[in-house]
Design a protein around this nucleic acid. Structure first.
Lengths: 119, 119
DNA sequence: GAAATCCCTGGAGCGCACTCCAGGTCAAGG
DNA sequence: CCTTGACCTGGAGTGCGCTCCAGGGATTTC
């Protein structure tokens, strides 16, 4: 089975090693497997999960929600709750996109206004 | 001339009184006019500026950039620099919208995947 | 003119999400 | 082996953007 050293996991996931440890402490990652000497070895599964974590963080999901989602993922019987959480998040993402677009339009009006002033 | 008490300015602008004072300290607002007793009186102009500040904050412009923009606004000869700053910001806003949309698409795929699992 | 509100200042405190550090242990190349 | 670099832990520190507080003065309302 392919595994990854902390440095490799950081490289592939795009999170720093410190952040990976922090996420583990926070319960966002399940305890990562270790070598006999105590060094972490990340699996492909871990990397896959980190990929989703990256998506959720990029879309502004707070750490606390991520932990909640991670906790739900430990229990097979929570599929519906997990989907609900993701859908709720999707709505918030949509809202921020909408806000961003609206404000961007105002920003562009301001820029046009400057242009009309002869800039 | 119409003026606004701190509470009214907060109400209209959507910022808290504390935030208004903070922005003034930070140089994002020029010194607000005062009554003889030292109480602030916001003008329509102040409110208009706050409206733009809100737009820029909503689109993620950091406080430091806002201060820089405010400083430029003190000098008539900086129109070009101000426009450049806004256009640069507009590009960053566009980037975050693009990122958000891309990640939202991934999020929705994940939700569809759950749905396909029979949730 | 007294009571109730509102506002003032300087500075401390907070929540979030990391990021860094000291002092040590582990692992791989020569 | 031995060195060198990667990794470990617990905990402190950082940066951002507010937010709150104490102690006191200003204003409005009755």
């Amino acid at each position: 089975m392919i595994t990854y050293s902390p440095a490799q996991a950081a490289e592939v996931s795009g999170f720093s090693i410190d952040t990976l440890r922090y996420y583990e402490r926070e319960g966002i990652l399940r305890p990562i497997a270790r070598t006999s000497g105590g060094h972490r070895t990340y699996t492909e599964d871990d990397l896959g999960w980190l990929d989703l974590v990256h998506c959720l963080r990029d879309t502004g999901m707070p750490i606390a929600d991520l932990r909640r989602y991670a906790e739900l993922s430990l229990d097979e019987a929570t599929l519906a709750a997990r989907v609900a959480l993701l859908e709720e998040h999707d709505r918030r993402v949509q809202e921020s996109i909408d806000t961003l677009r609206g404000q961007q339009e105002r920003l562009r009006e301001k820029i046009r206004w400057y242009r009309d002033q002869g800039v």
